[in-house]
Structure formats: structure tokens, C-alpha cells
Write a protein that binds this DNA or RNA. Sequence first.
DNA 1: TATTGTTATACTCTATAACTATA
DNA 2: TATAGTTATAGAGTATAACAATA
Lengths: 133, 133
Amino acid sequence: MELLSVSLAAYYGDFTVSAARENLTASQGKTLTVLRRGAASMSVLATTLTCDASNMTGIVDRLEKRGLVRREPSPSDRRVKNVALTADGERVIDTIRGRMHHTIAGLERLSTQERDTLYTLLERAFTAPPEAA
Amino acid sequence: MELLSVSLAAYYGDFTVSAARENLTASQGKTLTVLRRGAASMSVLATTLTCDASNMTGIVDRLEKRGLVRREPSPSDRRVKNVALTADGERVIDTIRGRMHHTIAGLERLSTQERDTLYTLLERAFTAPPEAA
DNA sequence: TATTGTTATACTCTATAACTATA
DNA sequence: TATAGTTATAGAGTATAACAATA
């Protein structure tokens, strides 16, 4: 577990530095990363980022003010607001990820086959299994 | 890289929840995790946690007030203060790590040999190589 | 002169509680 | 009644700049 902690700290530090170069905090960067996989409601964002729903309001406010995301009303439930990346937001998060030089260099130290093995093991260990009801 | 991000979020969320059960923030928990590997000066702590040195003052202040760490003057450099875990601090960080049930369960989904493979790959990818001068 | 640690400041993150509007 | 999102608030994290003590 020690090594997991060190490895993930290295990844997280690389991400934080890269996000800071675009004048984004780690939380703002993480939010864009999640939205890169598709639009999400405020409550889904809060759950995914493991923070209280009330925090998302401020984080999304700041991202929206910079034109990186936009809030849209849900067609099916008038209480819900869906948050989506703008074209600018997509460009920024791709830039951040492309500049994670330490992580990219680290992964390039492995062969294609080794990377596949790493991904398979991470997926089995960290992807939530169906809840045992 | 997508999978790395998801794995990190799972591990980090598990750690944050576990630290919160001991009334510690993620940054305080991370500080204890680093100190578990041995005492460190304020500046080394700041570098390891990827934050400014001025932040460490407040974080260590709060940990010290709760009796989890102590500051000691360095014998070799009177400017330096070394921070060390107290017995209470050791107990608390071990409790936190022992309660990371999602992570522990995830790792137990792998065989001993698979875990060894995962650790080897993580070490090669994320352990900093000697600087190419 | 440079470095270690602290303080002061301003902004951001975070959880809790109370609120509105929907369901 | 319960849920989605917001607001208000207070404590904690964060970077910047300026400072004292020491190297």
C-alpha cells in the first residue's frame, strides 16, 4: 500500500502542477476531468469528487465564469442542472493532461504489454464491483 | 491515463473518508503518512506534499496541538526544525490505513503474484529516476 | 547572499445547516 | 416526505510577499 500511496501522490502532484499552469486548482481540474467523460448533474459531480453538494456550486460557478463549463436544465427533472464542458473547457483539460510530463515519461518507461498489464490490474483492483446486496 | 485518474480518485476518496473518521483532513492525513516513513524537516514535508512551505506551518501547528507530531530543533542546522510522529500519531495513521476497506478489498481481488507485478510496474513508472543531468 | 521557517493576506476548498423549488 | 441545488457560515488549505534568524 505504501507504493500505491507514493505512486498516486506522484500522479496527483503532476496533475496539480499541470492544472496550476492553466490557473486552475486541483478541484477545478478534477471537475473538468470528470466532465470529459460526459455531462453530469451537480449531485453526480459531487458524488464522483467525494465532496458535499454545496461545494460544487462554488467550483462550477468559477468554471462557468471562465467559460469552461455551462449549466443546462435537465429536460426530465426541473430540479436538476446538467453541467457540460464548453469547447474552451475541452481544450484546457486536454492541454493539462498533455502536459503531465512526469506521468507520460513514467508510462513510457513500460512496454506496451506492461502498460496493458498495469491497466488490467488497476481496473480489477479499483473499479467498483457490483454491490453484493 | 484515464484509468490512472479513476484509480487515484478511488484510492484518494477511500483515504479521505478514513482520515475524516479520525477527524483529520486529507492534508493532515497525508502529512502523517509521509512522517510514517521517518522524521522530516518542514521544507522536505512541503516539497513532498507539493505545497508551499508556508502552508506546512499551519498544518503542523494543528497536528502538534492534537499531540500527533512534535517539532524538534535540528542538531546540525539551527534554522531547521524536524517534525516527528508521536506514539499517538503513529497509532492514528495506522488506524486510518487499516480502515481503507475499499482499497484493501480491491488489492485482495488480486493474487499475490499479481500484486507483486502491480507494485513492480508502479515502481518503474512512478519512482523518480536519477536526474538526467 | 541564500535558505529555513514564520506571519499576514486573499482566495479557494470543505462540511454543516437552513432554504427554495421541484418530485 | 424526499431530493436537487443554492446560500450562509466557519474552519482548513493554498500561494504570494515580507520578515527574522541562521548559514
